[in-house]
Design a protein around this nucleic acid. Structure first.
Length: 854
RNA sequence: GCCGGGAUGGCGGAAUUGGCAGACGCAGGCGACUUAAAAUCGCUCGUGGUGACCCCACAUGCGGGUUCGAGUCCCGCUCCCGGCACCA
């Protein structure tokens, strides 16, 4: 399409010749493709050149102290191919990578595939196509599309997380965790759907039944592998201070970890030998405790429940168990039942009733709380609903309130009704009572986190096998169906030299009735004999996070067979200097990867404590603004998905790249607008024209010289600050200036090409060649600017009277206040406003403004 | 509810520390070229004052404030987007 339009343009460029002449002459005047900007010709041309010359190969280590590791969050290669959101971040990093190379940095800019994952497995279940095959096909599509956009990746470092050569080291890292006691097994309640024969994620359950098919789901404990990320809570928290990350992301991680300081207090369970341990962040309110609440799953529920309450308690526990976590949290109503039992408050010996309620979570703290309704909103609500007394023990004034409280007062204050502690501030009280409790053995200081250990196993096929096996008791052959028992309490790591442990071939990827997962059916793979004894491999696989937890490490040395990476390569490249990816990974991926990194750091495998120095989240690209004046997320159902292939075909890759950067700030959410790409395309065409007009005999001087230097400064600074939209705007201004000039100095076009190169690399290469230079422009050093030339000698000063602009005067940059004032008095716009008035005050900001107060 | 971000022409956005609001681009209008259309080029384009110069008023979500001067700082709201969700 582009070419046809172009052909028409060509004929009309020379209308005189084309019109009144013979056919023969017409043929002669059709210009060569070089005569006009045609991305469909020059883009493949330069892509082939880059491939052939390995222009973007990572340079060998020659001791260059300047290095830049510039990384994109690698994609999951879905069947749908690239969408326009992908190139946004990728173009941003590509611009920085190309600029840094030109600025003399050794650059590592790699790309790979996060290729394990559910969609390929689902596809396999539906069609029987092996997930590996689907993955291969999808990768090919993604790679073709990325190459089409001209990104400067070092493709020799491509990573595929499903590649056995990569899986080997993912498993190796798992064993590092295992060896350090950071990987362990536990019975964890999961959402098991017997009808589907699979474990479901919380998202897959709606109203207690499976989203697909509406089958019942039960909470049942299944053996899982866990990673002890909680052991790294403090380090993960502290490490955030070492990074240059968006505040919002740091806050999200901080809150996800959710560290709190408090106390564990022991409440003897009256009439039994049990003790209820409660966790509280407000030990200063102990005297206000009027009841204790246990989570329904708490082990002491059974003991404390009296016979007359038993039926009710058991019914409540059973109902809680049947609900999913999500459903339990969906209802805010404070339900609960009294167990009939009592606990003794250690500070005053008071006996308070023990209730169970599902607003107390079994998994947090001790699964038991001391309820202080006067100073906790949830306890207040519960007490009000169930008629439990409310006792005020903290007040703002230090005196008890006269009227009964109408709502909880959770803020700090001064203690009342607290015996010997009355009059202490909340902070003083906390410190003192913790010390007193510890002295009497009634409690101790305790730090809690919301962060839970990480459930690391999946009952799926398309993931890394967990490299562990277990002893088996079996008379006969377990592969032939003879009865067997697996001793899961004795996990044995697969020897490092036997890695990778590859997946078995399967024909049927459907989940079965065994909660141990799909691989449990691959009996020939699962069971093996060693020294005459039977063993069973772990049949769980790793989650998709595993591969993405360390891919940035593999990129530094991707072909190493002896180690996951060499210490030299790690030292040369780490940490990642710039990491760009979606905000949807603000917590999980970025927290998990940091956790692995810190374990590897402690083990001496990596030289720096944090993996990602600077992090930026690109904003979402929405669909076109619709009739309602709003833009919506791109989605198949809305039919507003923009296909990059189509855009590249219509406008070219350079136009696509520059448009995506020109839309607005990188971090902002922005609506797509196809017709705006036309404007960008016209800009690139004008650059091409400037190159055609470039004349080596025209010296670069005067105002144009200043303009070039100002543009170099602006673009250089904007690339550093990732402000690509304003950098492009500056280049547009320069291009317009050049074309308006009577003649175009070749030197100016050269500088423009160098600045434009990171943004529109194909065009820049072409222009560079048109100007008579040998490729590649990537090898040419980044242009420098002279700050003196960036300044204009003459500046226009706005003259205000009482803050309103009344005139403008042109003065030398160095003009003094008096000089400017003198000119201003004469100014036709200003004079009438100051005539006959007293000049009370003069404000002069050199080079900017003169404000006269009369 | 809590946390984070945001609101500027018809649209996307610009304005580096408080200093000429609207750069750059899209869309629109007018004109040139053309039999015509497309493309290209030139001009125009915040709103209002019968308004293409000149002039005036209004204008950066709303209401106050600080300041010679506020899109920018402070106080109080409204709406939109993203995240979290009983964590004791």
């Amino acid at each position: 399409m582009t070419r046809q339009t172009g052909a028409r343009i060509r004929c009309q460029r020379n209308p005189a010749r084309a019109r009144g002449s013979s056919l023969a002459l017409r043929v002669l005047t059709i210009p060569s493709p070089m005569d006009r900007y045609d991305p469909s010709v020059i883009e493949p041309k330069w892509q082939a050149f880059w491939d052939e010359h390995k222009t973007f190969a990572t340079p060998p280590d020659t001791g260059n102290p300047k290095k830049a590791y510039i990384l994109d969050m690698f994609p999951y290669p879905s069947g749908a191919g690239l969408h326009v959101g992908h190139p946004e971040g990728y173009t941003a990093t590509d611009i920085v990578a190309r600029a840094r190379r030109a600025q003399g940095y050794d650059v590592l800019h790699p790309m790979g595939w996060d290729a394990f994952g559910l969609p390929a497995e689902q596809h396999a279940i539906q069609t029987g196509t092996h997930p590996g095959e689907t993955t291969k096909k999808n990768i090919a599509t993604f790679k073709r599309q990325l190459k089409m956009l001209g990104f400067s990746y070092d493709w020799d470092r491509e990573i595929d997380t499903t590649d056995p050569g990569y899986v080997k080291w993912t498993q190796w890292i798992f064993l590092e965790l295992f060896d350090r006691g950071l990987a362990y097994q536990n019975e964890v309640p999961v959402n098991w759907c017997p009808a589907l024969g699979t474990v479901l994620a919380n998202e897959e359950i709606v109203n207690g039944v499976s989203e697909r098919g509406g089958h019942p789901v039960i909470r049942t404990p299944v053996r899982q592998w866990m990673l002890r990320i909680t052991a790294y809570a403090e380090k993960l928290l502290e490490g955030l201070d070492l990074t240059d990350w968006p505040t919002s992301t740091r806050i999200m991680q901080t809150e996800w970890i959710g560290r709190s300081e408090g106390a564990e207090v022991r409440f003897p369970a009256v009439g039994t030998d049990g003790v209820i341990e409660v966790y509280t962040t407000r030990p200063d309110t102990l005297f206000g405790c009027t009841f204790v609440v246990l989570a329904p799953e708490h082990p002491l529920v059974e003991k404390l429940t009296t016979d007359d309450r038993r039926a009710e308690v058991e019914a409540y526990v059973a109902a809680a168990k049947a609900k999913s976590d999500r459903d339990r949290q969906a209802s805010r109503e404070k339900t609960g039942v009294f167990t009939g039992g009592y606990a003794e408050n250690p500070v005053n010996g008071e006996k308070v009733p023990v209730w169970i309620a599902d607003y107390v979570l079994a998994g947090y703290g001790t699964g038991a709380i001391m309820a202080v309704p006067a100073h906790d909103e949830r306890d207040f609500e519960f007490a009000t609903k169930h008629g439990i007394p409310i006792r005020e023990v903290v007040s703002k004034t230090g005196k008890p309130s006269e009227a009964p409280l109408t709502e909880a007062m959770p803020e700090p204050g001064i203690a009342v009704n607290s015996g010997p502690y009355d009059g202490l501030t909340t902070a003083e009280f906390k410190a003192k009572i913790i010390a007193d409790l510890e002295a009497k053995g009634q409690g101790k200081r305790r730090i809690e986190t919301k962060l839970r250990d990480w459930v690391f196993s999946r009952q799926r096929y398309w993931g890394e096998p967990i490299p562990i096996y277990f002893p088996v008791e079996c008379e006969g052959d377990p592969r032939k169906g003879d009865p067997y028992t697996i001793d899961y309490s004795k996990p044995i790591p697969v020897p490092r030299e036997e890695l990778p442990l590859e997946l078995p071939e399967l024909d049927d990827f459907r989940p079965g009735d065994d909660p141990q997962g799909v691989l449990a059916r691959a009996v020939d793979w699962r069971f093996f004999q060693k020294d005459g004894k039977w063993f069973a491999r772990e049949t769980n696989t790793m989650p998709q996070w595993a591969g993405s937890c360390w891919y940035y490490l593999r990129f530094v040395d991707p072909k190493n067979d002896e180690a996951p990476w060499s210490p030299e390569a790690a030292k040369r490249w780490l940490p990642v200097d710039l990491y760009v990816g979606g905000a949807e990974h603000a917590v999980l991926h970025l927290l998990y990867a940091r956790f692995w990194h810190k374990v590897l750091y402690d083990a001496g495998h990596v030289p720096v404590p944090e993996p990602f120095q600077k992090l930026v989240h690109q904003g979402m690209i929405l669909g076109e603004v619709e009739a309602d004046g709003r833009a919506h997320k791109m989605s198949k159902s809305r039919g507003n998905v923009v296909n990059p292939d189509e855009i590249v075909q219509r406008f070219g890759a350079d136009s696509m790249r520059v448009y995506e950067m020109f839309m607005g700030p990188l971090e902002a959410t922005k609506p797509w607008n196809t017709s705006s790409i036309g404007g960008v395309r016209r800009f690139l065409e004008r650059v091409f024209q400037a190159a055609q007009k470039a004349d080596a005999n025209v010296p670069l001087e005067g105002e144009l010289l200043s303009a070039v230097h100002r543009t170099i400064r602006k673009v250089t600074e904007d690339i550093d600050g990732l402000r690509f939209n304003t950098a492009i705007s500056a280049m547009m201004v320069l291009t317009n200036d050049l074309l308006k000039a009577p003649a175009v100095p070749k030197e100016a076009v050269e500088k423009l090409a160098l600045l434009l190169h990171p943004f529109a690399p194909h065009l820049a290469e072409e222009v560079w060649e048109m100007l008579g230079h040998a490729p590649s422009i990537q090898a040419v050093p980044w242009p420098s600017y002279d700050p003196k030339l960036c300044e204009e000698d003459e500046v226009e000063i706005a003259v205000q009277v009482l803050g309103k602009v009344r005139g403008r005067v042109k003065v030398a940059k160095s003009a003094t206040q008096d000089e400017v004032l003198a000119l201003a008095r004469e100014n036709a716009g200003v004079a009438p406003h100051i005539e006959g008035k007293d000049l009370k005050k003069v404000i002069y900001v050199p080079g900017k403004i003169l404000n006269l107060i009369v």
